[in-house]
Each structure stands twice: as structure tokens, then as C-alpha cells.
């Protein structure tokens, strides 16, 4: 893992929504770097700007200021055509929260898996040959290929979504709440797969509202609050010695198996501090 050749470098990113008087700032000067093979947990509550950050990095929403480098390429001010070329190379991929919505209900699992390869121009035969070894990597059976997404369990579907993100051998995958729609058994299964990916040369940005759900897989944790990055550091440091009040509240609020009676007054104090 080296940070001298980062996969993603975001500097001073600003995103606005709405026009004129309704104009509202969604991201306010966010800077973040993701090293090769690094797993970054991006944490924030609803409306904190974490999803906007991901969408800006993917070129889905325009940003008004700042600079974004993806695998060394400056994408600031890229045209639609240039974005399309970049995406076709499959350097950056995205996994949605709900695979039932992000997989075409009328396309077989095989169709969904080969789609990114066909888009970049591979032949169908090559593409199919490429996806086979991936299936074992996400612990799925070949038999699922001719099925439709509706015929799979939630956990299987999310593993298909992860496999789809892997087909182009990306340098970076952004995952938006990839396990929060799954039940315990499947959550562990998907987290296990993501953990195994770390040995491969792929960086992950793991977006979640729950610090607890990424603590086990992230090398580094970044916390967003009201459009700003308020915390950014190695997972251990952020969790054991948080700097910002919001991070302290976030850690104090994460459900743990310990008795929480003692934390209740602490949380109340942090809330008062945060809203002051």
C-alpha cells in the first residue's frame, strides 16, 4: 500500500444543488486521497454529502470548484465523451445499496455481469470467459448465471453486484451502503468477500451511515458532517481518539454489545455540544 501513487485524489471539492435563490451547498471544500489498495470508510448521516461526494467523483453531478484525479487522470471539466471513455476503461466502479434496483430485472445474471465488458467492446465469448473465475471469488455458483435477479436471495444479489464491479479489474470501487439492506448472515458473507479483495490491488471507498459497519474492514475512516469532512485518519485513531464532536457522538451512538446505560448521559452532553 503506497500513497505516493494514489488512485483517487480529491482537492477542495465544492458541489451546489439548485439554481439561484434555491442554491444550496452540498459539499464544502472536501479533500480526500485514496491510496492504492486502501480501504476507506466514508461515514456520514443522511444529507451529510457522502453520496454527493461519490456521485461527483463518478461524474454524475458537476462540481463548481476543486479538482478530482482518478488514477492520475485529471477529470476536472471532462466532457461527457471523455467521461464515457474513462468509464469504459473500467478504472472506477460503483456498487449500489439495493441490488434489486441496480440489476435489470429482465436481464439474466450473466447479462448483467458481462455488460461492462460488452460496453467497452469485448466479444461476448471473451466476456463470458472472464466472469467465470470471478464467480468463485464472490462465492457464487455457475448455476446462477441463467437466472433473473428476482430469483436470487438478497445476499446472492449483492454478491452479483460486487462481481459486476470487479469484471473490469478496476483500481477503485465505491460502495454505497453495500450491506445495510442485508440480514446478518449475508452481511458477514459480503463483508468477508470485501475483506478478501484487499489482497487484490483494488481500493475501496465504503460509504455508510454507520461507523460500526465499516470499522472491521476500513484502513482509514473519513467522517462527513453537513457537507464538510470533519475527520480523516487511520481507523484505529479515529475510533479510539476522535477529534470532532460529531465523530465522538457517532462512536458513542454505534450499537455495541456493551451495556449502554453509562453512555447515555455522555451522548446527551455531546448532542448539546453539537447543536450549540
Amino acid at each position: 500500500m503506497s500513497t505516493d501513487n494514489p488512485v483517487l485524489t480529491v482537492t477542495d471539492l465544492e458541489v451546489h444543488y439548485g439554481a439561484r435563490r434555491r442554491r444550496r451547498q452540498a459539499l464544502n471544500g472536501v479533500s480526500l486521497e485514496v491510496g492504492r489498495g486502501e480501504v476507506v470508510g466514508l461515514i456520514g448521516e443522511t444529507g451529510s454529502g457522502k453520496s454527493t461526494f461519490a456521485r461527483a467523483v463518478l461524474g454524475l453531478v458537476p462540481f463548481s470548484r476543486g479538482q478530482v484525479l482518478i488514477d492520475g487522470e485529471d477529470v476536472t471539466g471532462h466532457s461527457q465523451r471523455k467521461w464515457r471513455e474513462l468509464r469504459r476503461r473500467g478504472v472506477i466502479q460503483y456498487v449500489f445499496q439495493d441490488p434489486l434496483r441496480s440489476l435489470d430485472p429482465d436481464a439474466t445474471i450473466e447479462d448483467s455481469l458481462v455488460e461492462p465488458l460488452l460496453i467497452r467492446g469485448d466479444s461476448r465469448a471473451d466476456a463470458v470467459a472472464r466472469i467465470r473465475p470471478l464467480l468463485s471469488r464472490v462465492h457464487l455458483d455457475d448455476e446462477l448465471l441463467p437466472r433473473l435477479p428476482g430469483e436470487l436471495s438478497g445476499g446472492q444479489r449483492q454478491r452479483v453486484a460486487v462481481a459486476r464491479a470487479l469484471v473490469t479489474e478496476p483500481a477503485l470501487i465505491i460502495l454505497d451502503e453495500p450491506v445495510s439492506a442485508l440480514d446478518s448472515a449475508n452481511r458477514v458473507g459480503v463483508l468477508e468477500i470485501l475483506k478478501e479483495l484487499r489482497s487484490a490491488e483494488v481500493s475501496l471507498v465504503f460509504i455508510s451511515h454507520d461507523l460500526g459497519s465499516v470499522a472491521g474492514v476500513a484502513d482509514r475512516i473519513a467522517v462527513m458532517y453537513q457537507g464538510q469532512l470533519v475527520e480523516n485518519g487511520p481507523a484505529r485513531d479515529v475510533i479510539t481518539a476522535p477529534q470532532h464532536v460529531y465523530t465522538r457522538l457517532l462512536i458513542g451512538s454505534a450499537p455495541t454489545l456493551r451495556s449502554a446505560a453509562a453512555n447515555r448521559s455522555e451522548r446527551a452532553a455531546l448532542r448539546a455540544l453539537l447543536h450549540a
Binding site: 446478518s184 448472515a185 452481511r187 458477514v188 463483508l191 461507523l211 460500526g212 459497519s213 470499522a215 472491521g216 474492514v217 481507523a235 484505529r236 475510533i239 479510539t240 462512536i251 454505534a254 455495541t256 454489545l257 456493551r258
Partner: peptide, 16 residues
């Protein structure tokens, strides 16, 4: 045991 292990492996508990 699996539910508990999930929290200990992936949750905050292991740091705390």
C-alpha cells in the same frame, strides 16, 4: 454466536 461474532469482528467492539 454468529450474531455476536459479527459485532466483534466487524463492529466497533474490537477497537473498544
Amino acid at each position: 454466536r454468529m450474531l455476536i461474532a459479527e459485532h466483534e469482528q466487524y463492529g466497533l467492539d474490537r477497537y473498544l
